[in-house]
């Protein structure tokens, strides 16, 4: 098994902030907009260094999406920043018409996604955003797993022409992917080679999947672990190739099992290689207040549940 080292817990949103700060220096067309959450989104460094290219829009997310769409006319590359809930559900029609249908080069950057937002509770813990965004034609959907990958993704999406939804989170989590690593949109990352079960994870659950693979290994089960940072376009080839080898799959995500990564994988497999699958995801519920750790445990979004689902799905082979 490959060994991955956590170089120190860091929040993915700070990876976004670091990427944006770097883009400020390297790409003069990059502009940033924020709806009164500059500190939470870690956009301060960009805002301080480039006040002329930073637009504080206030608590008015619909207007922010429209302004971002308009700024692309004239060649700007707008990055919008607010919480995932306010980046998607609150402004779905603005994104649909003014950005997606209008083919605008806007990067919708969303922090505080999922349960790990924590104590603020269900009003802010969106678990439906991946589904909402992947259904929009032409939208690229990315959910990064750690600080380094979030920074790399932030840099990569500036060079990709077209609308992008970049989803990341609030808590400090393991940072284990390479510093200044390559980020290829739509390309799965193989973290462990295995033969008994495939574990496909996204976002904060990638580290949990690695922990689960270690636990499975101790039980004599060989798990293949794939980091799917791009939900859309999905690297179908990598997933199909893996299940052809392992014969079963577990998907893991901090999202409702309806509409998320698991469903995209299930559709892919139904079409190309029907395979037993289990889902580590929330079960069509809202979240609630609690610490991130408590919530992940209560809703089964952790290594222990990935292990349990892996054993279940192996029995279905």
């Amino acid at each position: 098994m490959k060994t991955y080292t956590n170089t120190g817990n860091k929040d993915t949103r700070s990876g976004f902030g670091a990427g944006l700060e770097e883009l400020g220096k390297t790409n003069e067309n990059v502009v940033a907009l924020c709806a009164d959450l500059t500190g939470s989104l870690k956009m301060n460094a960009f805002a301080d260094a480039h006040p002329d290219r930073f637009f504080q829009v206030g608590i008015a997310e619909a207007n922010m999406m429209g302004i971002a769409a308009g700024m692309t006319i004239g060649g700007k590359i707008p990055f919008t920043g607010t919480f995932a809930n306010f980046s998607t559900g609150r402004v779905y029609d603005q994104i649909r018409q003014s950005i997606a249908y209008s083919d605008k080069n806007v990067k919708i950057c969303a922090s505080h996604s999922g349960l790990t937002l924590g104590e603020d509770g269900a009003t802010h813990q969106i678990l439906e955003d991946l589904g909402l965004m992947k259904m929009l034609p032409g939208m690229t959907v990315i959910n990064t797993c750690d600080y380094n990958q979030t920074k790399a993704a932030t840099l990569a999406i500036a060079d990709h022409h077209g609308p992008v939804y970049l989803r990341f989170g609030r808590p400090k989590v393991a940072n284990f992917t390479p510093e200044n690593g390559d980020f290829q949109i739509g390309k799965a990352v193989h973290l462990q080679e295995g033969t008994d079960v495939t574990i496909v994870a996204t976002g904060h659950l990638v580290w949990e999947a690695l922990e689960a693979a270690k636990a499975l290994n101790e039980k004599g089960i060989s798990a293949e672990v794939i980091n799917i940072h791009t939900i859309k376009p999905l690297d179908e080839e990598a997933i199909v190739a893996s299940v052809k080898k392992t014969g079963c799959i577990v998907t893991a995500e901090e999202h409702n099992y309806l509409g998320g990564l698991g469903e995209s994988v299930a559709r892919t497999l139904a079409q190309h290689h029907p395979t037993p699958q289990e889902f580590v995801a929330t079960q069509d519920t809202f979240g609630e207040s609690g610490t991130p750790e408590q919530l992940l445990e209560k809703y089964g979004l952790n290594a222990a549940n990935i292990v349990a689902k892996a054993e279940q799905v192996i029995n279905r082979k």
Binding site: G66, I67, G70, M71, I73, G74, G75, K76
Partner: peptide, 27 residues
């Protein structure tokens, strides 16, 4: 045509964005 419209209320925001872009570009 530079933007889709039909679902109402969005065009003023878009116009503001284009106007800001012009200012940044010295246009």
């Amino acid at each position: 045509v530079r933007i889709a419209s039909g679902s109402l209320g969005q065009g003023m925001s878009v116009g503001i964005g284009a106007a800001l872009s012009k200012k940044l570009n010295g246009d």
